[in-house]
Amino acid sequence: MYNDTVQNLPPALTPDTFDALFAQCLPKPQTERWTEIAWETELWPARQRSAQENKPLFLWAMNGHPIGCV
């Protein structure tokens, strides 16, 4: 599957290209609007808050943590 005739070569990683490539790879806050939602990151504290505030519980359940690697 992989051989020496790769069409899409990666950019060179050097001290000069480091900063730009580094910035490209990290999440950018302006695209992460889902962080504006007041998520609990585990079910139990959410269940406790739901009991205290008497509001319905919304669960976003994924393989992998939805706020981490999903």
Binding site: T31, R33, W34, E36, I37, A38, W39, E40, T41, E42, L43, P45, A46, R47, R49, S50, E53, K55, P56, L57, F58, L59, W60, A61, M62, N63, G64, H65, P66, I67, G68
Partner: peptide, 21 residues
């Protein structure tokens, strides 16, 4: 979850949990 309608509704009316199954 970047849709403002979703953000507002979840924040106002629900207690929200993101969980790893």
């Amino acid at each position: 979850y970047s849709d403002p309608r979703i953000i507002n509704l979840l924040n106002e009316r629900f207690v929200n949990a993101a969980v790893n199954i």
